[in-house]
Simulated assay, not measured.
Amino acid sequence: MNHVEILGVPFIHSTRNEFIDILHRRIKQQNKTFVVTANPEIVMMANENKVFMEYLQTADFITPDGIGIVKAAGWLNKPLPERVPGFDTMKDLLSLANENQYRVYFLGAKQEVLEQCIHNVSNDFPKMEIAGYHNGFFDLDNPQIAEEIRELKPDLIFVALGAPRQEQWIYQNIAKFDKGIFMGVGGSFDGIAGVVPRAPEIWQKLNIEWLYRLIQQPTRWKRMLAIPRFVFKVLLQKTNKR
């Protein structure tokens, strides 16, 4: 698969549907797969944290989760087909699990949020097998969590610990497993549980979902400061490649 590199982070050159097809083949072949969904904040975090960049470099696929990534690719004259949002990708995979009765494990979030998430996915995807779940409050160096999950033999493992914690957990533990799609999904459990509402469709189509989330969660403003730094560094990368 072709990639577009933005500030050292290689993004897949793929549509969302093409990507789901690739992951489905890997599930059927029982190929372990590390998926990262990255927006400008993640890219800047990786540029400012060498250890986190190492986690990303070991991922099998990094998707452009954010219009800022797609815009940056265009500025660099290496256009990406479209956004491949983590939340939508997760929902696509849940639908796939429902159609094929795949086993799914959910790791992360507060206990009450996680339980509501499990309740909702059970209703929406009744044929999917829930292999198990555990909240996000545990020591990352505790090997017991990974061992318990491994014994359940899930096909999909969604890790909602937030970056860089979720990528660190996958990086540290994926070698212990025989199979599975491991995907960091940030606050997606909150979205499925209904704790944090998804932006209305018109906001999504206008690519200003980030603004809706900021209005809903004003405490995110500090994280948003990464965006102007990201734009500056991408434009600098473009200038240096001329």
Rank of each mutant, 00 (worst) to 15 (best):
L206G: 13
P40I: 05
V159W: 01
I130K: 01
A38L: 03
P10W: 05
Q29Y: 15
L114V: 10
I174S: 03
K32E: 06
S14T: 11
N98R: 09
R26Q: 08
I130V: 10
R220I: 08
R16W: 12
F125D: 02
D60P: 06
K28D: 13
A109F: 04
R26K: 13
A46Q: 01
A226I: 08
I20N: 03
V159K: 00
K241G: 14
A59S: 09
D139S: 14
I130C: 04
Q116M: 13
N123W: 14
N173S: 07
I215M: 11
K241A: 15
F52G: 03
Y212I: 08
I118V: 15
T58M: 15
R198L: 11
R83S: 01
E147D: 14
I181T: 07
P64W: 02
L236M: 14
F52N: 03
L96G: 03
L214Y: 04
E147K: 14
N142M: 09
P10F: 07
N173E: 03
K28I: 13
F138H: 10
N173L: 07
N135R: 05
Q172S: 09
Q168F: 09
I22S: 11
T89C: 10
C117P: 05
I42K: 02
V159Y: 03
Q29N: 15
R213Y: 04
M44N: 01
Y171S: 04
S95H: 11
G184C: 09
P143Q: 07
F138N: 09
L56Y: 08
Q168H: 09
M45I: 11
R220C: 10
K233D: 13
R83K: 11
I69H: 00
I67R: 07
M128F: 05
R26A: 09
A131N: 06
A163I: 05
I12H: 02
E99L: 13
E54Y: 13
K176R: 13
M1S: 15
R213D: 05
I145P: 00
W75N: 05
Q168Y: 11
K238I: 09
G162M: 02
W75K: 06
